[in-house]
């Protein structure tokens, strides 16, 4: 029995090595004194200093974070409302809409990307034509256009973020005792208040999970952004992609190390808080059940696109 344990730990360790080897390489070489990505030339903070002077990378970083934050927040609101709406539907329409909701998750990223790109281009031409007619009639010269840019990028991210939020809230709603909501109303709470005080606390872990997954997906996405952002704006991933043709500047290693460490720190803080909370009120929910959902109630699956 003991031997068995050792064997399985060894196996887990080997996988961890496989998963983390490239990340360790990236972090270590963000401190390299030269541009080489394989030869160690000494410790330096050079790339971290250069990073903050590089306006291209800083603006790509801002775009990435801004899109991820906005898309996550919008997805949270829309996703929560929709999940509640779906849960009060009859089985048939509900499973149909959940199937539609799954499309962006199951579909290959590249197809989501190019199809949205075609949609935006089509909208652009349609709107331009419409604008010409309007301008002609009214005699103005207002510009009507949809160009690939920040807005289309954001729309695309919202589109692939909402399904994650819905999928992680749906199982929580299923567990929810329907009578609670009615009981609150019987006791005189207006619907809004019964939602706020009764339903929301119950589904909050699901909302947090959904946001965490959506945010992760937004930050990590390259393919869909690549097709929908156009040439004007770029995210960190797109910046990295355009660099791969020559050589990636270690500044990118530096910014990625920083983002990675910030996230790691956040996760640790959340976890510590959660452990403390568990100790005080012995109620295991909150954030990191992004991982727990997979255990207890698992939204159809921890579906994530890559």
């Amino acid at each position: 029995m003991r031997k068995h344990r050792v064997g399985s730990r060894l196996f887990i360790g080997l996988i961890a090595l496989f998963l983390y080897a490239p990340i360790v390489v990236l972090i270590v070489f963000s401190f390299n004194a030269t541009k080489s990505r394989t030869l160690w030339a000494g410790f330096s903070f050079e790339w971290y200093i250069k990073l903050f002077q590089d306006s291209r990378i800083m603006s790509a970083c801002t775009t990435t974070l801004l899109v991820a934050v906005l898309a996550t927040l919008i997805a949270m609101v829309v996703g929560t409302a929709t999940a509640i709406g779906f849960s009060s539907m009859k089985k048939r329409p509900r499973s149909f809409f959940l199937l539609l909701n799954n499309i962006p998750l199951i579909n290959a990223d590249i197809i989501t990307g190019v199809s949205l790109m075609l949609l935006f281009v089509f909208m652009g031409t349609a709107l331009a034509g419409f604008g010409r007619i309007i301008n002609h009639m009214v005699g103005t010269s207002t510009g009507f256009h949809v160009q690939l840019g920040f807005l289309t990028l954001l729309l695309a991210h919202i589109t692939f973020d909402i399904p994650y939020v819905i999928l992680s809230i749906t199982p929580k709603l299923r567990q929810l005792d329907k009578n609670l909501f009615e009981a609150a109303q019987d006791l005189g709470a207006p619907p809004w208040q019964s939602f706020w005080k009764v339903v929301l606390p119950e589904i909050r872990p699901g909302i947090f999970n959904g946001m965490l997954i959506a945010f992760t997906m937004s930050i990590d996405d390259f393919v869909i952004s690549y097709f929908t952002a156009g040439s004007g704006v770029s995210t960190l991933a797109m910046e990295i992609y355009s660099m791969t043709r020559k050589r990636i500047s270690p500044e990118i290693n530096a910014i990625s190390t920083l983002l990675f460490l910030i996230v790691l720190l956040l996760l640790i803080i959340i976890n510590i808080r959660q452990v403390r909370q568990d100790k005080t009120n012995a109620r295991p929910d909150t954030m990191l059940s992004a991982i727990d959902t997979t255990e207890e109630d698992s939204a159809p699956y921890p579906t994530m696109n890559a």
């Binding site: 992760t216 930050i219 990590d220 991933a237 991982i291 994530m304």
Partner: peptide, 10 residues
């Protein structure tokens, strides 16, 4: 899950 926080291109 954690590696996903480092951009996949990188």
């Amino acid at each position: 899950m954690l590696p996903m926080w480092m951009n996949f291109l990188l």
